[in-house]
Design a protein around this nucleic acid. Structure first.
Lengths: 113, 113
DNA sequence: TGACATACTACGACAGGCGGAGTATATTAT
DNA sequence: ATAATATACTCCGCCTGTCGTAGTATGTCA
């Protein structure tokens, strides 16, 4: 089985997270499941990778956190949600452009099929 | 200008080098120029990145080194050439498969256009 | 009652990339 | 003749993102 190595995906974990936050604010566990689902289980982000990405991106101003209840009645444990900022949206768009370039570059070294 | 960040290309420097060595044995400076040319200057590998890749890949058994003269008359300074091994060829093929998967995964998080 | 899901935090190791500096020879321009 | 530039490397150490391991605490379901 071919698996995606961390060195390969390294530059795109943040982008994937931001992509999900473009739709709606979300939190760790949910984002983790979103990534798994959207890739049909082909990629599962590690917990530590995910949470350290939150810290880094909040520091960089790409996301903002807020604590909220899981439901309006205030039941359940509070969660830390993240919301994408304008800077985050810009960063995401840049990464999409960069991806186009990267794909072009890398494929010049791949066997055709 | 969009530039390829090292975190993105990280998983593919070795693959690019091996791709060039699939054609013929080569050495540092020439490989560096090959990468630059093949990508139309879109990607230029750093010297230290290149030479440390040689060390790593030789240790891993993906390449073998030999010292030779630049020309048959024995003029000029000797160079360290690298030749891809069978293990290196296999590794390269695996990376090509991994690329297909990575591309699929990453693009599920990219804006369409 | 106990397993499993949810929702995190902390710590430290590891690996690849890279900046900076240095060495040495060869070729080309002035 | 000399200076600049290209070639062909090596060494050292920092930085960053990933990830293994471990721990905490609540919620839910059988």
């Amino acid at each position: 089985m071919v698996e995606i190595s961390s060195d390969v995906i390294r530059g795109y974990n943040d982008t994937m997270i931001l992509s999900i936050l473009m739709e709606a604010p979300s939190y760790g566990y949910e984002i983790s499941k979103s990534i798994r689902n959207r890739t049909d289980g082909k990629y599962v982000i590690k917990e530590t990778t995910l949470y350290s990405a939150f810290t880094r991106m909040e520091k960089n101003g790409y996301i903002e956190s807020f604590v909220a209840d899981p439901d309006p009645e205030g039941n359940g444990k509070k969660r830390t949600y993240y919301r994408i900022t304008e800077a985050g949206r810009n960063y995401y768009r840049e990464k999409c452009e960069e991806w186009t370039l990267t794909k072009d570059v890398v494929e010049r070294f791949m066997v055709e099929r």
